[in-house]
Design a protein around this nucleic acid. Structure first.
Length: 809
RNA sequence: GCGCGAGUGGCGGAAUUGGUAGACGCUGCAGACUUAAAAUCUGUUGACCUUAAAAGUCGUGAGGGUUCAAGUCCCUCCUCGCGCACCA
């Protein structure tokens, strides 16, 4: 008998699968379709890491399972190759980004093939292919034409290291998520996408899709919806009005001062001569602070009085207007009405600057702290006696009559800063003309290709390197044909991934981004697997993109992904996050496979280690264990046995085992519970190993099914057994998923516990329809139980058939 | 501070949704095979107390409660992880 040798087996089958194209998905097949998508990678020059293997491995298991179930499965793969890392790699290695990407894709694809994933490579593409980004640009123009892409001069997040503007979502704790450098503010003219128009839809749509609650909650949280009111305050003795947003209009009578963000446009207008010096120096000090400093909640409140007053519209009293950096220009209107009695921050501020604190909601002790709970209104004129909710409604109604307040919903979500000052991205297909303004490049001139240049290092002056290429920049206005200039900013690295899943449905179409019939056939992605870290980035962006496309009639479904699953993080053995900077931190799946365990064992270990969505420490022993398991499977099927048609007394056990296992593995796969599915397969192997007569017909049928169950998890060794050991003509991965007989999944006899007064004292063997009296009799025969029952009367008997017998004495 | 999730053996983790806690894997221990080791196979592996055997007591972060019965349900609290964070 040959030893299990993954190395020769794996490379052989990977080649055969590629040659026979068994994983190629067919458009418009009669079978029901199933689209399983795994986030496509950025092809770096480095080794593939465990996070990739988690994503692709999970997708591959599902893809193989669904194929076996008779679905026409689309399991595609491509590359997301625009963006900063490719450019940095190119600069470092002194090659062009185009060359770097080509090399890296070849390298990465080779690794993916080495892992044996069942991707349909015929549909592969890179977001950097001009035939692809033509449509990325075209889609941008649809946003532009719909008024959802616009230019604005705003204060944006600027990464001084990468020398580019960033979206809000790309800033984590005040640092650029890619390079970890501190982000600055910079005023630049930028392209933005109006994602805020879709804030409500992005929340709503989550109801109709199956996302882990963690993911849905995080998106809802990020969008940050709050319901409240906008109220106008007039500045005393001046013509200005200050608009504020508040979620607590009920506390208006308690507003004893106002605060403007230092950047607020009214600040310079209302500040008095006496206060000007103080205000100016405060603004200057604020500008010198980083976002991290400014957002530190533990910092003591600072601020300065403008000298101006506003009129509280409820009390008609004059209240001072301050500026303070705890009020952010980026949220609401950049101005607040401060109610120190019922807001922690306002309370702290008022205390520090000796501003009066007026209680308007009873129930707290405002001398000690702000009271933010419920209660009855006090000191509030016509609101007195109402509770908070009633008061909110009443005051907004009253003020609305006078035209100084209205209900308002606010979101934390900001419009998406969509331009980058880097070379390696899709050029924004706009021409700037002195006469006609921003003019879209006509469809027949797309794509606007990136010019090949010698220098593409970022300039750092807020201009894209493209701006230095005069021959490219200078063009004719598509409208009036007069000389005009191209937009030189490029799109963010997220642009290509916004809609890539749609392109898999029809990857080679030159007429449109994807044919409508194919969009309809492959429709919604049934299962989308990816990393948790993309929840408020790519996943949110692409949902927005898709919703817009739906509104434009470009796609048939309102949401892109029917279900989302994210994998947990692999931690180092000491429980910390795997990172490149740490010694031995990153383990690469292929080198582990090359150590002799093989790809199948590595893939199984990743699936077996922990529940799919849970973070867990990486364990090299787990791979060894899975290798051992696969070796045992290999030895079992290769064990020489005498074939016989005779029935064996062990047949019943064999049948029960395989039927139970089919049921369990199928149920677990539906829930992406890979770890328990594998445990069930291991359990079954243990049962099978104990069988003495391995020659019966029942045995052969069962072991055949067993290999089919194992196939999605260990595709190579099962294929070798199927096609070489058993000489089947067609791949195990094209075979039909075995069915089970419900009757054969139930054991005739089960052991149930016997409890006396709720404590386990014995065990009896019963059937599911053993009567209570019979069960009691059996229990009485157990010496230990009998000892406890001896001489005592049973008060009560609880008997749950097939579960438990509990006797109360 | 807000939102979400999790606390079970030496370790990773199971537990049919209230019914014999610790499946499966790893590790450890003992044995078989071997000149020896590796590999493989067999047994064993929650703690305590006893042990000739059987039995027994405790045990799912802590404390309380509901129930014949709680890892699972309810209340109070603690710890850890993730995300957001001066969001008005």
């Amino acid at each position: 008998m040959e030893r299990y040798n993954p190395k020769t087996i794996e490379s052989k089958w990977q080649k055969k699968w590629a040659d026979s194209q068994i994983y190629v998905a067919k458009d418009f097949d009669d079978k029901p379709k199933y689209t399983v998508l795994t986030e496509f990678p950025y092809p770096s020059g480095a080794a593939m890491h465990m996070g990739h293997a988690m994503t692709f491995g999970g997708g591959d298991i599902v893809a193989r399972y669904k194929r076996a179930q008779g679905f026409n499965v689309l399991f595609p793969m491509g590359f997301d190759a625009f963006g900063l890392p490719a450019e940095s790699f190119a600069i470092k290695n002194k090659v062009t980004p185009q060359m770097a990407v080509e090399q890296n894709i070849a390298h990465f694809r080779h690794q993916l093939e080495r892992m044996g994933y069942s991707f349909d490579w015929s549909r592969s593409f890179s977001t950097t292919d001009p035939e692809y980004y033509k449509w990325t640009q075209w889609l941008f123009l649809q946003f532009f034409k719909a008024g959802l892409a616009y230019q604005d001069e705003i204060n944006i997040n600027w990464c001084p290291f990468c020398k580019t503007g960033l979206a809000n979502e790309e800033v984590i704790n005040g640092r650029h998520e890619r390079c970890d450098n501190l982000v600055e503010k910079k005023k630049l003219k930028q392209w933005l996408l109006k994602i805020t128009d879709y804030a409500e839809r992005l929340i709503d749509g989550l109801k109709d899709v199956d996302y882990p609650s963690r993911v849905a909650d995080q998106q809802i949280n990020w969008i940050g919806k709050s319901i409240g009111a906008e109220v106008d305050f007039t500045v005393a003795d001046q013509e200005y009005k200050i608009k504020v947003f508040t979620t607590r209009p009920d506390t208006l009578f308690g507003a004893t001062f106002m605060v403007l963000a230092p950047e607020h446009s009214l600040v310079s207008k209302i500040t008095t001569k006496e206060q000007k010096a103080a205000v100016d120096s405060y603004i200057k000090a604020t500008q010198g602070k980083s976002d991290i400093e400014r957002q530190d909640t533990n910092r003591a409140k600072t601020g300065v009085f403008t000298g101006a007053y506003a009129i509280n519209p409820a009390t008609q009293e004059r209240i001072p207007i301050w500026i303070a950096d705890y009020v952010l220009m980026g949220y609401g209107t950049g101005a607040i009405m401060a109610v120190p009695a019922h807001d922690d921050r306002d309370w702290e501020f008022a205390r520090k600057f000796n501003i009066p604190i007026t209680e308007v909601i009873g129930g707290g002790n405002i001398d000690r702290e702000a009271y933010t709970g419920d209660g009855k209104l006090v000191n509030s004129g016509y609101l007195d006696g109402l509770d908070v909710e009633e008061a909110k409604r009443k005051i907004v109604t009253e003020l609305a009559k006078k035209g100084i307040a209205q209900e308002k919903v606010n979101y934390k979500l900001h419009d998406w800063v969509y331009s980058r000052q880097r070379y390696w991205g899709e050029p924004i297909p706009i021409v700037h003309c002195d006469k006609c303004g921003a003019v879209p490049v006509p469809d027949n001139q797309l794509p606007v290709e990136l010019p090949i240049v010698d220098h593409y290092e970022p300039t750092g002056d807020g201009q894209s390197p493209l701006s230095k290429i005069e021959t490219w920049v200078n063009t004719a206005c598509p409208k009036c044909k007069e000389p005009a200039k191209r937009e030189t900013d490029t799109m963010p690295n997220w642009a290509g991934s916004n809609w890539y899943y749609l392109r898999y449905f029809d990857p080679h179409n030159n007429e449109t981004f994807a044919d409508a019939k194919k969009l309809k056939y492959w429709g919604m992605v049934d299962l989308y697997m990816g990393g948790m870290e993309h929840t408020t980035l790519h996943l949110l962006y692409s949902r927005f993109h898709h919703q817009f496309m739906y509104d434009q009639g470009l796609v048939p479904t309102p949401e892109p992904y029917a279900a989302r699953r994210g994998h947990g993080m692999l931690l180092t053995t000491d429980g910390t996050k795997m990172s490149k900077s740490k010694d031995g931190g990153v383990v690469d799946p292929i080198s582990v496979a090359d150590d002799g365990y093989g790809v199948d064992a590595v893939r199984m270990a990743l699936a077996f280690l922990a529940p799919y969505d849970q973070s867990t420490p990486w364990s090299p022993e787990a791979v060894a264990g899975c290798y051992r398991f696969l070796t045992r499977v290999w030895n079992l099927v290769n064990e020489p046995v005498k074939k016989s048609s005779a029935k064996s007394p062990e047949d019943v056990i064999i049948q029960k085992t395989i039927n139970k296992t089919i049921k369990k593995v199928g149920a677990d796969l539906e829930k992406t519970n890979f770890n328990t599915a594998i445990a069930a397969l291991m359990e079954a192997l243990n049962e099978f190993s104990k069988i003495k007569n391995k020659g019966s017909a029942v045995w052969h049928e069962a072991i055949r099914k067993y290999i089919q169950l194992l196939a999605p998890f260990a595709p190579h060794v099962t294929e070798e057994i199927w096609c070489e050991v058993w000489q089947e003509k067609e791949s195990v991965h094209l075979s039909k998923w075995p069915e089970y007989d419900e009757k054969l999944t139930v054991d005739e006899f089960v052991k149930i516990g016997v409890q006396i007064n709720g404590k386990l004292r014995g065990e009896i063997e019963v059937t599911n329809d053993t009567a209570e009296a019979e069960a009691l009799k059996l229990a009485g025969q157990d010496a230990n139980v009998a000892g406890y029952l001896d001489g005592k009367k049973s008060k009560k008997v609880i008997y749950v058939a097939g579960r438990i017998l509990n006797i109360i004495v």
